[in-house]
Design a protein around this nucleic acid. Structure first.
Lengths: 247, 247
DNA sequence: CGCACTTTTGAACAGAATCAAGTTTTGTGG
DNA sequence: CCACAAAACTTGATTCTGTTCAAAAGTGCG
């Protein structure tokens, strides 16, 4: 059955490199291959790709070639309606895996744009599938990653479906905060990479509403904002605001 | 690597039965096994399970044992907040595969309740993973199914984030209509299986709003409603309402 | 057959959108 | 480095959509 193991050492190295250097380590680590050996090849194989601020990582309609793991930077994915309206589907940062929604149709269904200079790792999907075939634990992990994306989306649906503007924004800020914390940055002080309009689009609100609510939060002492800079003074108050819905 | 092929013929038959009888045929058909042989075993293995109206297929918090393919009937999945609020995450009908969101944590994160007497096929997840290991095309298909779920969720996010009440309901009705059509039922005449409140929860609206908009649609001649019975008179008008957002 | 649940409809209200203006910030080219 | 134009942001006034509250009618299950 595994006569299909047509993976060359280079293939494996490529994939392994993409994974290990991209904080999607878990995707490959359980594979049980020799790590030091891989570390050496890491330098040889270079699948990193820079994406400059404002540039597209991929566009809706293009064929799925690779999934992308973010090494550093910040990317938004967005669906474009025919009537011009844009809906931001997600904000992605270091370690996130992009392009999962393209697997179903074999082509991308949304745009991915860098909101700041970004470096991604290319993970050729065909290669990933082939390798997953040979390493069961890799496949398992990939399943979990896909599932996690579904869970994340459910969270957003919950937010959009049942929260008011203040709750949504509080949940959003806490979520950002937590993701920065996970990556070793400050959980209380960071720069928003996106515009008010993009936040609004993501949260199903208008940019004016975002601006107003931010101002209100600041007035109440929950946060400090100045342009893109944001400081969270009272995370607990924000949590109380969200009620008991996890983000 | 495939020394792990500990699948017994019974295992395969079980899975195959669950799939082939559940319209999730595509999940298994590409496996390239002998169909007639399987048809025979189908009768032996019976993993079908009835779920009576109002009963839970599974509950949030319970361990993931199986995915479920709906053979017939209608099921809603819903997330329960700590504060009692319930958010309907989806409505599922014949052929749909349930439980994908549980893979990430190994336990279910939402409740699944039958809205009418329903029959499901049990697909033990461990078994599915094992078999997918041996049949690459099966794994591929499973990946696509997960991805399709992500795409579906993005559609809902779009709906919740950028549509007004009328648009949401129109999109919802069209979506139901199309799914019934796919399954060989009338696309213009069917019974809603859920309450106004459940529709509202799914669409991020209150039940009164659902009721009002339905009445309005009826008054304008777009549909006919009487309790759960619904007839679509002018699907094109509904489509126009939705604008150019696919559902 | 009656009681609980669901649905409809109305009236008042609230939250967010829209419209509008003015300000600040940012990015660009001279 | 400065000036200028474009983009982003803030704030206010008004409007509108959907919610909330309330009552009554309909439906269906036990």
């Amino acid at each position: 059955m595994s006569a299909q193991s047509s993976l060359t050492p280079i293939d494996i190295a490529t994939l392994r490199n993409a994974c290990s250097t991209c904080s999607v380590r878990e995707l490959c680590l359980p594979a049980g291959l020799d790590l030091q050996e891989l570390a050496q090849v890491d330098k040889m194989v270079n699948r990193r790709r820079p994406v400059r601020r404002g540039d597209y990582l991929y566009r809706a309609g293009t064929e799925l070639q690779s999934l992308y793991a973010i090494r550093s930077g910040f990317i938004k994915s967005a669906v474009l309606h025919e009537d011009g309206r844009e809906q931001v589907a997600g904000f992605h940062m270091t370690g996130d895996l992009l392009g999962l929604d393209a697997i179903s149709a074999g082509r991308h269904l949304c745009d991915a744009v860098a909101l700041e200079d970004t470096e991604v790792c290319d993970i050729p999907f065909a290669l990933l599938e082939r390798l997953a075939r040979e390493i069961p634990s890799l496949q398992s992990h990939f399943n979990r990653i896909m599932s996690r994306e579904i869970v994340r989306d459910h969270g957003v649906m919950l937010l959009l479906g049942s929260m008011r503007a203040e709750e949504r924004l509080a949940a959003f800020l806490l979520n950002l905060s937590q993701r920065f914390a996970t990556r070793g940055y400050s959980s209380t002080e960071f720069n928003l990479r996106m515009t008010r309009e993009e936040i609004g689009s993501y949260l199903g609100l208008k940019l004016e509403t975002i601006s107003r609510v931010l101002s209100r939060f600041q007035q109440e002492g929950l946060i400090q904002v100045r342009n893109r800079y944001l400081k969270i003074n009272d995370a607990d108050a924000l949590r109380r605001l969200v009620g008991h819905c996890e983000s």
